[in-house]
Design a protein around this nucleic acid. Structure first.
Lengths: 231, 231
DNA sequence: AAACTTGTTGAACGATCGTACAACAAGGCG
DNA sequence: CGCCTTGTTGTACGATCGTTCAACAAGTTT
């Protein structure tokens, strides 16, 4: 049976003057944003299991069919949510850093923001882990990661470069400040940040936020103070 | 209809002397191990989507019903696979470290093993990420994590403690060697390791294994050389 | 060789999954 | 007001999910 299907009779409203619209039409841009927000909220609440069309549409307060009207399929919705999630993080961290005056203060502000709400929240961090878990088998997620990760790395590298340019310039030239390989320094700091986030996600409370900041700062201090043996 | 259901007639073998058994009975212990191995293999190949009863049983070459004969449900199978995965890693790293003579060599061997096959494999690392993504909403996974993570932390702390006891003992007593807070040092090194693994998982080839080892060693060197400002 | 234990099979179940699509209706325009 | 566009609904579909369980059979015991 592929023909037109019967439809449930609409409830008749006896008092038309009180009848409210059954739904509100919205601009695609707004609806897409709402669906993305609902996707992230479902991820926070239910983890990977929350990534179902029905769960997300219920969270957004819309019907199941609407998602495929605004997104070609579920994977693209999830990827859009990942893009939004990335952008929120990087924009927030950059905004926190840019408010400070000196390179050291900017790094400090960046680290403080990294280890305080809303970023340092176990639910939020678990969302990152789920996204990362999708990475290797989802082309759309890979695309978003490639697009947005460079922004994050550029931010970290910029902060490090400003900070290290104050140190004595042992080895100058391509990507080296104060005798330190800037590329490797950024990789290490990023790893430290991500690793501490992961530990907080798995065991929140094993360390205090200010301890995490201290760990990162002592890493950066070590970079500033001496040229390491990195090739 | 809840009564007994009909069964497909078994294919009749015309030459009984060539007939082989349709399956081989195995000890529960062996079959469980095979199912756990199949689970991990499916995770490597298909990510989170590979965690289905049918995918796993096909990988193991058994029927769908067998899993629930050896495990109470899917979550417990996944948790058992997580436990095995953890044990393999920690045992392997410990075995690598214990072969060396000096504290510095043991740390070096530990780091070398951390950043070489089979551990430093994008598929293997992606399996970790999927497990971690399950953590917050799966009690069995949480239980395994609590059981096994202490072993890993103890290994890292032991390596660090041996290494730091050679440094000048600025502040002695509970958990402090060479003026360094051992607990925080272990947290930092663990975070660095996990973070580098995560980066390798997302972008293998962004750094070389020996660069990762160098990053970790310079972290440890910084610990040895000076008492940091960690509270 | 018959009885027994139990590891193993595979069909069936109800639930839920992502997607498609015809019908409906909200809001703008003439 | 009627027409039109299009955002929105909700049923239906086929596939797949985790789990159950009666039947089967491999291997051991009697």
């Amino acid at each position: 049976m592929k023909g037109p299907r019967p439809r449930a009779a609409a409830a008749v409203q006896s008092t038309p003057e009180l009848r409210r619209p059954r739904f509100r039409r919205q601009l695609p841009q707004q609806r897409r944003a709402a669906l993305i927000a609902a996707t992230i909220e479902c991820l926070k609440r239910y983890g990977h299991e929350g990534l179902s069309i029905r769960t997300i549409s219920a969270q957004a307060g819309v019907s199941v069919g609407l998602i495929n009207h605004h997104f070609p399929n579920k994977d693209e919705l999830v990827a859009a949510a990942f893009r939004h999630f990335n952008r929120e993080l990087v924009d927030g961290l950059r905004a926190a850093a840019v408010r400070a005056d000196t390179p050291a203060a900017r790094m400090r502000a960046f680290l403080d923001a990294s280890f305080s709400p809303p970023n340092l929240d176990a639910d939020v961090l678990a969302v990152w882990v789920v996204f990362w878990g999708l990475y290797r088998h989802s082309r759309p997620i890979q695309r978003v990661q490639r697009d947005t990760y460079t922004g994050y790395v550029r931010l970290v590298r910029g902060l490090l470069a400003d900070l290290l340019s104050g140190a004595d310039d042992g080895g100058k030239g391509r990507g080296r400040r104060g005798g330190v390989n800037l590329r490797l320094a950024a990789i290490g700091l990023t790893a430290l940040l991500d690793g501490l986030w992961l530990e907080w996600c798995l065991e929140p409370g094993k360390f205090r936020p200010r301890e995490a900041v201290a760990l990162c700062e002592s890493w950066v201090d070590a970079l500033c103070r001496r040229a390491t043996a990195w090739n």
